[in-house]
């Protein structure tokens, strides 16, 4: 599943970039994030309780940030699994200055498997967009 979305965060790119690579900010802004610990430079382990409305599942997994070119772009790769199945993929995130704000473009390649793929075809795409939108909104409001 390919997802492309854009969002505008009211801060300059360097602050947004710093936020996207700060585990403490990520823990507070990733929807449903219950734990997030750094396991190495730019590598994390996390527990997420995500989904839509009452249909939430708990996932544990790893994430890593690569291809960093501050403050323009980074690539986030992730893999997680839980009762409802697995999610893995990567997202290329590009930051562009837009006046006082930053335009964030995200091109993600997401693979889901198990129950969420089998029964969620109607909802997975929409849910993924919603979660990503929520995340960038949170980033915007969590900036120091």
């Amino acid at each position: 599943m390919k997802l492309t979305l854009s969002s505008t965060v009211p801060a300059d790119p360097s602050r947004v970039f710093a936020a996207l690579t700060d585990p403490e900010v990520l823990r507070r802004t990733i929807p449903g994030c219950e734990t997030l610990t750094a396991t190495g430079p730019d590598a994390y382990e996390a527990t997420l309780k995500i989904g839509v409305a009452g249909l939430k599942g708990t996932y544990t997994g790893k994430a890593a940030i690569t291809d960093q070119r501050p403050p323009e772009r980074l690539t986030l790769s992730f893999e997680g699994k839980g009762g409802p199945g697995f999610v893995r993929g990567s997202a290329a995130i590009t930051l562009t200055a837009d006046g006082d704000a930053t335009r964030v473009d995200c091109a993600a390649d997401v693979h889901v498997g198990g129950l969420i793929a089998a029964i969620g075809s109607r909802l997975v795409d929409a849910a993924a967009r919603k979660l990503a939108d929520d995340f960038f909104r949170q980033i915007g409001s969590a900036l120091p």
Partner: peptide, 21 residues
Amino acid sequence: AKLLTGGHSLIPAMKLRLARP
């Protein structure tokens, strides 16, 4: 907690363990 009325959305989701109230 989750409210149950007719159960036609909640019960299938619970049976699939997508909902776990």
